[in-house]
């Protein structure tokens, strides 16, 4: 059952968003969750349309990111899950939270480490989705160099500690974990003031 915006103050305490930002984020949530079925929840199709702009039926990353948002494993997103996950993408979110989320994202099989075969699968998917054509030799070369940088324990996989060390040395690897415009949420959705549940 859709429950809407129940406790904006609690969500504001537990995320990087202020109460006003939570209420403005709810305006965005209503827009996304009514795109296909107006039920106050975001299904995978609405998620894909809003956050990835791709119409393909299946996408490795849409599925993986959706699963990470869907912490209650219900196959559908409520506002609380949406707000908590997007909080990690806020410019003010803790770097450690971004590192953790990105590790989970790339640990496709959820084994606690990123293995070479997963990296290759993600590279091949990315190249296919962006229409780039690289030979298998070049792809293998890119992956070899990446593991030379990341796999400091030389066991053929990247664990969380190695991932953390890699992204701290190469912060640009976390670029996709920050959405700068989330800072503008209240000015983009000013109508939240008409539905506000809290006093100034």
């Amino acid at each position: 059952q859709p429950r809407g915006l129940e406790d904006p103050e609690l969500l504001a305490r537990e995320t990087v968003f202020s109460v006003s930002e939570i209420e403005a984020l709810y305006e965005l949530f209503k827009r996304i969750s009514s795109a296909v079925i107006d039920d106050g929840l975001i299904n995978k199709e609405e998620f894909q349309l809003a956050l990835f702009k791709i119409n393909k039926k299946e996408s490795l990353f849409v599925d993986r990111v959706f699963d990470l948002f869907d912490t209650k494993h219900s196959g559908i997103l409520g506002f609380e899950e949406f707000a908590r996950a997007l909080s990690v993408f806020h410019p003010n979110a803790l770097v450690d939270d971004k590192i953790e989320f990105s590790f989970q994202l790339y640990d496709l099989k959820q084994q606690g480490f990123i293995e070479r075969q997963e990296v290759k699968q993600m590279v091949v998917t990315t190249l296919a989705e962006s229409g780039m054509n690289l030979s298998d030799d070049v792809i293998e070369n890119i992956i070899n160099k990446t593991f030379e940088q990341a796999d400091t324990k030389h066991d053929g996989k990247i664990d969380k500690e190695e991932w953390k060390n890699l992204v701290l040395r190469h912060p640009s690897l976390l670029k996709n974990m920050t959405l700068q415009y989330l800072k503008d949420i209240t000015t983009t959705f000013p109508s939240f003031v008409f539905h506000s549940q809290v006093d100034d």
Partner: peptide
């Protein structure tokens, strides 16, 4: 003499980041 080609400058995760990027920018356009 063997030509090993240009050095690889891109990390696999930089590449993957292109596909795994969320994009809500359309909702924020003024």
């Amino acid at each position: 003499q063997r030509n090993s080609g240009p050095p690889i400058l891109i990390n696999a995760f930089q590449l993957i980041g292109m596909s795994s990027c969320l994009d809500l920018s359309g909702f924020f356009e003024k």
